[in-house]
Computed example of a mutant assay.
Amino acid sequence: MVKIRKIINELSPYVPGRSINEIAAEYGLKKEEIIKLGSNENPMGPSPKAMAAIEEEIKKISQYPESGLGDLKEEIANYSRVNPEQVIIGGDGADEIIEMLGKTFMDPGFEFIVALPSYMYYEYILQTYEAVPAYAKWDVEENKLDVQSVLDALSDKTRLVFLCTPNNPTGGLIDKKDIKTILEATDALVVVDEAYFEFSLVDNVDLLEDYSNLFIMRTFSKVLGLAGMRIGYGLAHPQIIEYMHRAKPVFSLTKLSHAAALATLRDPDYIKESTELSITSREFLYQEISKIDNIRIFPSKSNYLLMDIRETGMNAAQLSKELLKKGIIVRDCTSFKGLDEYWIRASVGTLEEDEKFIKILKELVSSR
């Protein structure tokens, strides 16, 4: 029998959401009628300019992709108000950026901090480098970071501190002064995950000038509508970026992803409309679900909303299944450390999809 690393043998596989094909087959639904509100995707779809760019570039897929990505770095730098040497691009969404952080900064036995509940893929990836999680707290009731818990978790073994803002799955923001407090308390790299920053109309790029231990992580998967193309990027001090490039695969971004990313950033009207649609949808969902007596919904600065459903008489698995039967996919948040079995998260949809979701949700919870 071949030998497997101990940590891999002990690691539970990451379980992604089920596909529309699987759900349609199990519940006898038409695929085109299923409403997907579980993955925080863009209900508007991609930029038409991105689709045209892919159609043109597909003729060249017999060639290797670009390695330097200078034109895309330039566009990202302009979009993010930084210099191109402060940009690194990943070819598996923000997940490859996390992978590169692990390769560059983690040694076995050293620690990274996550405030729970938050995005769990940080832990999933970094454990493969035999890194040790140190948990801080996100105060769900107040929907804010417990800053002191982060400071208390710092040690001489801390290499990375993850701060997700807006936080996934709660949708709350971390105040800039709190980020500065943490940056000034450690020489570890503080990773501010801004995957959803466009929906909040707030970012932390201005802090890069004064803090060399700040790393901002972003993605093309949300407001930019390219989740299927798998493009992520990071912003940091040029020396940090140079170190990470040493660990980065040379051809990690495909030709089609490269073309789609460039075209999207060069389509400001699409980005503006996409942002406005998601914010409008979010506020509509919040207002309407707030009217349902036995669901507690939390305000959000992202493109999803967290709901406490314990008063409905169902747990998250039960309600999620009942919604699936009706063709609505939401996220059962039981797998998020720091939450119990009574939380679901719903992404924004088109207003037509939102209305159908709310109608079905009301029917399900009022029948109990």
Rank of each mutant, 00 (worst) to 15 (best):
2 V>G: 03
7 I>H: 04
8 I>K: 14
9 N>T: 11
10 E>H: 10
15 V>P: 03
21 N>I: 10
23 I>R: 03
38 G>R: 10
39 S>E: 15
41 E>H: 13
47 S>L: 06
48 P>H: 08
49 K>W: 15
55 E>A: 10
60 K>T: 12
62 S>A: 13
64 Y>S: 13
73 K>P: 00
77 A>P: 01
82 V>P: 00
86 Q>W: 15
96 E>F: 05
99 E>D: 07
99 E>W: 07
111 E>C: 03
114 V>G: 03
114 V>A: 09
121 Y>P: 00
132 V>P: 00
135 Y>Q: 06
138 W>K: 02
143 N>P: 02
145 L>M: 11
146 D>R: 12
148 Q>H: 08
154 L>A: 13
155 S>R: 10
159 R>T: 03
161 V>I: 08
171 G>S: 08
173 L>T: 09
181 T>H: 04
198 E>R: 09
199 F>E: 01
199 F>S: 02
201 L>A: 14
203 D>I: 06
209 E>L: 02
218 R>Q: 05
225 G>C: 07
227 A>L: 09
227 A>G: 06
228 G>H: 15
230 R>S: 00
232 G>P: 00
233 Y>N: 04
237 H>Y: 14
247 A>S: 06
263 A>P: 00
264 T>K: 12
266 R>G: 11
269 D>H: 13
271 I>P: 02
281 S>A: 08
281 S>N: 04
287 Q>W: 05
287 Q>N: 08
288 E>N: 10
297 I>G: 00
298 F>Y: 14
299 P>H: 12
310 R>T: 09
311 E>A: 06
312 T>N: 00
312 T>H: 00
321 K>E: 11
322 E>M: 14
323 L>I: 04
325 K>S: 01
325 K>L: 04
326 K>V: 02
326 K>I: 03
327 G>T: 06
331 R>F: 09
335 S>F: 14
347 S>Y: 06
352 E>M: 00
352 E>Y: 02
354 D>Y: 04
356 K>V: 10
